[in-house]
Lab assay of single mutants.
Amino acid sequence: MQIFVKTLTGKTITSEVEPSDTIENVKAKIQDKEGIPPDQQRLIFAGKQLEDGRTLSDYNIQKESTLHLVLR
């Protein structure tokens, strides 16, 4: 499924993921596309910071959901 990751600069990254993918996994995909190390990434969805060990389905993230990427 496709999800969108919006950066603070307003850029939107499209990523191909599975509901069973972990947040860590998603951060790795963002690193592949943007070159941002996962340890600098914080992903936010519905006002919550997403934890690395959890999966997209844990957070009820569905296709075409938009996550927000904040850098630390």
Results as ranks from 00 to 15, higher is better:
Asp52Met: 05
Glu34Tyr: 14
Gln31Arg: 13
Pro19Tyr: 07
Gln40Phe: 09
Val5Tyr: 03
Asp32Phe: 12
Leu67Ile: 13
Gln41Arg: 02
Pro37Phe: 05
Ile36Arg: 03
Glu24Phe: 14
Ser15Thr: 15
Lys27Pro: 01
Asp32Cys: 08
Pro37Asp: 08
Asp58Met: 04
Glu51His: 08
Ile36Asn: 03
Val17Thr: 03
Asp39Leu: 09
Ser20Thr: 13
Asp21Ile: 04
Leu43Ile: 07
Ile30Trp: 01
Val5Met: 04
Glu34Ile: 15
Tyr59Gln: 03
Ser57Gln: 12
Ile61Ala: 02
Leu50Cys: 02
Gln2Ser: 10
Pro37Glu: 07
Met1Arg: 04
Asp58Cys: 03
Asp39Phe: 10
Asn25Glu: 12
Arg42Cys: 15
Val17Ala: 06
Glu16Pro: 05
Thr14Arg: 10
Ser20Asp: 11
Ala28Asn: 10
Val26Asp: 00
Ile61Cys: 00
Ala46Trp: 10
Lys6Glu: 08
Ser57His: 10
Thr7Phe: 15
Gly53Pro: 06
Leu8Tyr: 13
Ile3Ser: 01
Lys33Pro: 04
Glu34Leu: 15
Phe4Val: 06
Gln31Leu: 11
Ser15Gln: 15
Gln31Ile: 06
Ser65Pro: 02
Pro19Ser: 09
Gln49Gly: 07
Ile44Thr: 08
Glu18Asn: 13
Thr14Trp: 08
Thr14Glu: 08
Leu56Trp: 02
Glu64Trp: 13
Thr7Pro: 04
Gln31Ser: 13
Met1Thr: 03
Pro38Asn: 08
Gln62Glu: 10
Gln41Glu: 02
Thr66Asp: 03
Lys6His: 13
Ile44Trp: 15
Gly35Lys: 06
Ile13Met: 07
Met1Pro: 03
Gln31His: 14
Glu34Phe: 15
Ile13Leu: 09
Asp32Gly: 10
Ile13Ser: 02
Glu16Gln: 12
His68Trp: 15
Gln49Asn: 12
Thr9Lys: 11
Arg72Gln: 12
Gly53Thr: 10
Glu51Leu: 09
Leu69Met: 08
Glu18Leu: 14
Tyr59Lys: 00
Arg54Ile: 06
Lys6Val: 14
Ile13Lys: 02
Met1Lys: 03
Lys33Asp: 06
Lys29Val: 07
Leu71Thr: 09
Val5Thr: 03
Lys63Ile: 05
Gln40Trp: 11
Asp32Gln: 14
Leu8Glu: 15
Asn25Met: 15
Thr14Ile: 14
Lys27Gly: 01
Thr66Gly: 02
Ala46Gly: 12
Asp39Trp: 14
Ile3Thr: 00
Glu64Leu: 10
Glu16Val: 12
Asp58Thr: 04
Gly53Ala: 10
Lys27His: 02
Gly35Trp: 03
Gln49Lys: 09
Ile30Phe: 03
Gln2His: 11
Lys6Asn: 06
Glu64Asp: 14
Lys48Met: 13
Thr66Pro: 02
Ile61Gln: 00
Thr7Ile: 13
Tyr59Val: 02
Gln41Gly: 05
Glu24Asn: 08
Thr12Trp: 10
Ile44Gln: 05
Arg72Asp: 11
Glu16Lys: 09
Thr9Ala: 12
Ile44Lys: 05
Thr12Arg: 07
Phe4Trp: 06
Gly47Ile: 01
Phe45Trp: 08
Gly10Asn: 05
Ile23Glu: 01
Asp52Gln: 04
Arg42Pro: 00
Gln62Lys: 12
Ala46Leu: 11
Thr55Glu: 03
Lys29Glu: 04
Gly53Trp: 13
Tyr59Asp: 01
Glu51Ile: 09
Ile44Arg: 05
Ala28Lys: 15
Lys33Ile: 14
Leu43Tyr: 03
Asp58Phe: 13
Pro37Asn: 07
Arg72His: 12
Tyr59Asn: 02
Thr7Gln: 07
Leu43Phe: 04
Ile23Pro: 02
Gly53Lys: 12
Ile23Thr: 04
Thr7Lys: 04
Ala46Thr: 05
Pro38Val: 15
Leu50Ala: 00
Leu50Trp: 00
Phe45Met: 04
Thr22Pro: 04
Ile23Cys: 01
Lys63Arg: 12
Leu43Met: 04
Lys11Glu: 09
Lys29Tyr: 10
Lys27Cys: 02
Lys27Ser: 02
Arg72Leu: 14
Asp58Asn: 05
Gln49Phe: 15
Gly47His: 05
Leu43Cys: 01
Val17Asp: 01
Glu64Lys: 08
Gln31Cys: 14
Ile23Tyr: 00
Lys11His: 11
Leu69Asn: 01
Ser20Glu: 10
Phe4Arg: 07
Glu16His: 11
Thr14Val: 14
Ile3Glu: 02
Glu34Ser: 14
Gln62Arg: 11
Lys27Leu: 11
Asn60Ala: 08
Gln62Pro: 09
Leu8Asn: 12
Leu43Val: 03
Val70Lys: 07
Val17Met: 05
Gly10Val: 02
Lys11Val: 09
Val70Gly: 05
Ile61Gly: 01
Val17Leu: 05
Lys48Asp: 06
Lys29Met: 14
Glu24Gly: 13
Lys48Thr: 12
His68Lys: 07
Ser15Pro: 09
Phe45Leu: 05
Gln40Gly: 06
Asp39Val: 08
Glu16Trp: 15
Glu64Tyr: 14
Ser20Cys: 09
Arg54Gly: 06
Ile36Thr: 07
Glu16Ala: 09
Pro37Tyr: 05
Gln40Thr: 08
Pro19Asp: 06
Leu8Pro: 15
Thr55Pro: 06
His68Pro: 00
Ala46Met: 14
Gln49Ser: 10
Ile36Cys: 04
Leu56Ile: 10
Met1Val: 05
Lys48Cys: 09
Thr22Glu: 02
Lys29Gln: 10
Asn60Ser: 09
Gly35Arg: 06
Lys48Trp: 06
Gln2Val: 15
Val26Gln: 01
Leu8Val: 13
Ile44Val: 09
Gln31Tyr: 15
Ile13Gly: 01
Pro37Trp: 06
Pro38Thr: 15
Asn60Pro: 03
Lys27Asp: 00
Leu8Ile: 12
Glu64Met: 10
Asp21Glu: 09
Thr14Cys: 09
Lys63Asn: 15
Lys6Thr: 11
Lys63Thr: 13
Ser15His: 13
Thr7Ala: 05
Glu51Ser: 07
Leu69Gln: 03
Tyr59Glu: 02
Leu50Tyr: 00
Arg72Thr: 13
Gly47Asn: 06
Ser65Thr: 08
Gly35Met: 05
Gln31Ala: 15
Thr55Asn: 05
Lys27Arg: 05
Gly35His: 07
Met1Ser: 04
Ile13Ala: 02
Pro19Lys: 07
Asp52Val: 04
Arg72Cys: 11
Gln40Pro: 02
Gln41Ile: 13
Glu24Asp: 08
Tyr59Leu: 05
Ile13Pro: 01
Ile13Thr: 03
Gln62Asp: 09
Leu71Gly: 07
Arg72Lys: 13
Ala46Asp: 13
Ile36Trp: 14
Asp39Ala: 11
Asp52Ile: 04
Gly10Met: 03
Leu69Tyr: 01
Gln40Tyr: 09
Ile44His: 09
Phe45Asp: 01
Leu50Asn: 00
Ser57Asn: 09
Lys6Gly: 03
Thr22Lys: 08
Ser20His: 11
Asn25Ala: 14
Tyr59Pro: 01
Tyr59Arg: 01
Gln49Pro: 11
Lys33Gln: 13
Thr66Phe: 07
Pro37Leu: 06
Asp58Tyr: 14
Ile36Asp: 03
Gly35Pro: 03
Glu24Tyr: 15
Pro19Gln: 06
Ile23Phe: 02
Ile44Ser: 08
Val17Trp: 05
Val26Ile: 12
Glu16Arg: 09
Ile23His: 00
Thr9Met: 12
His68Phe: 14
Ser65Tyr: 08
Gln41Asp: 02
Leu67Val: 08
Gln62Asn: 09
Val17Tyr: 06
Ile23Val: 10
Ile44Pro: 00
Asp21Leu: 05
Asn60Phe: 07
Asp32Leu: 13
Ile13Tyr: 10
Val17Cys: 08
Asp32Tyr: 10
Asn25Leu: 12
Lys6Ile: 14
Leu67Asn: 01
Arg42Met: 15
Ser15Asp: 04
Lys48Glu: 12
Gly35Val: 03
Ser57Met: 12
Phe45Ala: 02
